[in-house]
Write a protein that binds this DNA or RNA. Sequence first.
DNA 1: CACCATGTTCCTTG
DNA 2: CCAAGGAACATGGT
Length: 281
Amino acid sequence: MPELPEVEVLARHLRPVLRGKSIRAVRVNRAKILKPTTERELKRVLTGAKFKSLVRRGKYLLFDFTASGKTVTLLGHLGMTGRMFVADKAEPLPKHSAVVFELNRGVFVFEDTRYFGRMTLDLSSVEKLGPEPLDQDFSPEGFARELKRSRQPIKVKLLDQTLVAGVGNIYASEALFRAGISPKLAANRLTFAQVKKLHGTIRDVLAEAIDCGSTVPLNFSAGKSDGLFYFGRAPGVEDYYEERLLVYDRAGKPCVRCKSSIKRIVQAARSTFYCSSCQKS
DNA sequence: CACCATGTTCCTTG
DNA sequence: CCAAGGAACATGGT
């Protein structure tokens, strides 16, 4: 599920749901998710803690709690398949519930089929992140400066979270298509005009995804439909939202702009989708 | 059985 | 120290 927009939508959903909640008990079903925090440590620090606030940074969620006068921060990351939701205590937990926080009312569940996600007290990953793409400090000039230092293909470079935080495999392809830039172009070969264009399309594509996700009725309770989907993917909402992913997972389908066939290539062991006619350089 | 999947980190190589 | 490439992590869908 998770690139920046999905995580942002999740944060907006969770904030009011967690307001006023305290942690009665912590259950850990898969300690690997806590790394490098230990199960003991997590329980010691968070049992009895009261939820204060939630901030998204890149694809990470930072939960602040107050525990015996002090603030403790819990860092969450959804990995590839993670989900977080608050449900009634009586509801059956999904199969891969890695960590379950029992609240004064209900349970806060971190579920992750592939267990690539994180729920930890170690905040070091967040310190390495680049600027927030939707904030002012993400400037075309700074972006250009960083791109100049790399010879990697631009698509691969966009996945580097120290360059800009929150862009993932789907929106990287989408932003490049909108900018008309080839995913294979070396980062340091982009013209400043291209950098400015890409800077804009990154912001646009992420902002639109957030808007779109924010208006989808959300139901994060256990079960299949948790409401967090990419553009146009939510079952039952096709009627409301036009398909917004213009290239991702559209190999062989006609380009929305020029009708030529969308290509799939592999870069850094990940799929890249693009239009070889609209994205020549 | 084969291949694919929204992400990050660790290890190696240059 | 740095950039870059590749494997590893674990499970499920097609």
